[in-house]
Design a protein around this nucleic acid. Structure first.
Lengths: 218, 218
DNA sequence: CCTACCGATCGGTAGG
DNA sequence: CCTACCGATCGGTAGG
């Protein structure tokens, strides 16, 4: 009797999931971004609707109700993943542009810089956030969608002058607006088939894209 | 008491949903394809996981359990939508090729025929089946995926000789295998943004795609 | 952040 | 193809 009363109590005390920091659970931003990373990975692999908040909690080493301490709903968690993905993509794109040669350099080279960075954001290590944004857009509200549209405009901003100049120079013959949509399609679809462990590298992918889109030109 | 016994009975007899054929409910293939069409529309709009079998049944004018008379599971219904979409796409592609000029005609023209038909299958009226196949592939089993892979090979078969010849003639400079993946991406992504009621026509879309992919060439 | 819980919904089935 | 139903799971919450 005494045993049967103490044993369960002890086994309940045993921590579940990954070990916690003994110091302070006030390490808040950390737990939040663990949730974001776990959610991004699961949303990408199984889709938003097929992922339960329990799955996400478990992947972050929490109990089933705990995600709602950090996010007010499952939908808010999805939106946070997308927003985080866009902020990171914009930042990385700006760094890639700065790292590249001056803006006067050859136009195909500038397009290649943008495309190469896009593949990185889309297919590189830890790249679940942007694919989630691209492929789970159906599951956010119109209001949230409008919020993301602004970030997407920011992301696409550096592409327009390059595409316009390529069109003017005759190396991009298609209508620029449609060309932009088709090009992003070609790139974004790679999230469906690209396998980092085999086949082409991201550099080879970028080369193929440039070769496909750029006419002979001057 | 007599009233309260007959009234509910009568109200239960009143048919729910859309009117049925009074003649014979043995009109079986018809009901089945109504289910397929309803399922395709809902799977496309809301996704597989967010669509309940009750939604599908209601859209086809049935009661909640009835879809399982025609399909043994929700997953079997999804697979049937995809299979039906591929069979139809292959058939329409073969007709488009037959209708076009002889196979010896100009290569960009042959590619345009394939692309134009692809947009039709993807974006034309009643075109929910192929987008479902493209965007809900995550929700089928590996066994089902293998079954579809054969149909996809059949669909892609007429593209290869055209792309190979374009590469040989110098009008397609990118690696052919990667070019094929990028091209299908550019086309397939249009299901995400194309709006039949505004913007470009499918012909203009096909023109833009050809202009984007084809170098100046001989 | 955990425990314990609730109401709602879902895929599927038996039996007609 | 309908009726009535079941077990499972889910998002979310109160109260600590």
């Amino acid at each position: 009797m005494a045993m049967s009363a103490t044993l369960p109590a002890e086994s309940v005390k045993r921590p579940r999931g990954r070990p916690r920091k003994t110091v302070a659970d006030r390490d808040d931003g950390n737990r939040r971004s663990e949730l974001l990373r776990s959610a991004a990975r699961l949303f990408r692999r199984k889709g938003f609707d097929a992922t339960s908040t329990r799955d996400i909690a478990a992947a972050a080493g929490m109990q089933s109700g705990s995600p709602f301490y950090h996010f007010k709903s499952k939908g808010a968690l999805l939106f946070a993943v997308m927003e985080e993905g866009m902020h990171s993509a914009i930042e990385r794109q700006q760094q890639a542009i700065s790292r590249a040669e001056p803006a006067t350099a050859d136009l195909p080279g500038r397009l290649r810089t943008l495309i190469r960075n896009h593949f990185d954001v889309l297919l590189g290590p830890g790249s679940d956030f942007i694919p989630v944004m691209l492929y789970e857009a159906r599951s956010i509200t119109p209001r949230q969608r409008a919020g993301l549209a602004g970030l997407q405009r920011d992301y696409e901003a550096p592409w327009s002058p390059v595409l316009d100049a390529l069109h003017a120079s005759g190396r991009l013959r298609a209508d620029v607006k449609l060309a932009r949509l088709l090009i992003f399609g070609a790139l974004n679809w790679s999230a469906q088939w690209y396998d980092r462990r085999k086949g082409a590298s991201l550099d080879e992918l970028a080369d193929a894209a440039i070769a496909l889109f750029m006419g002979e030109g001057p």
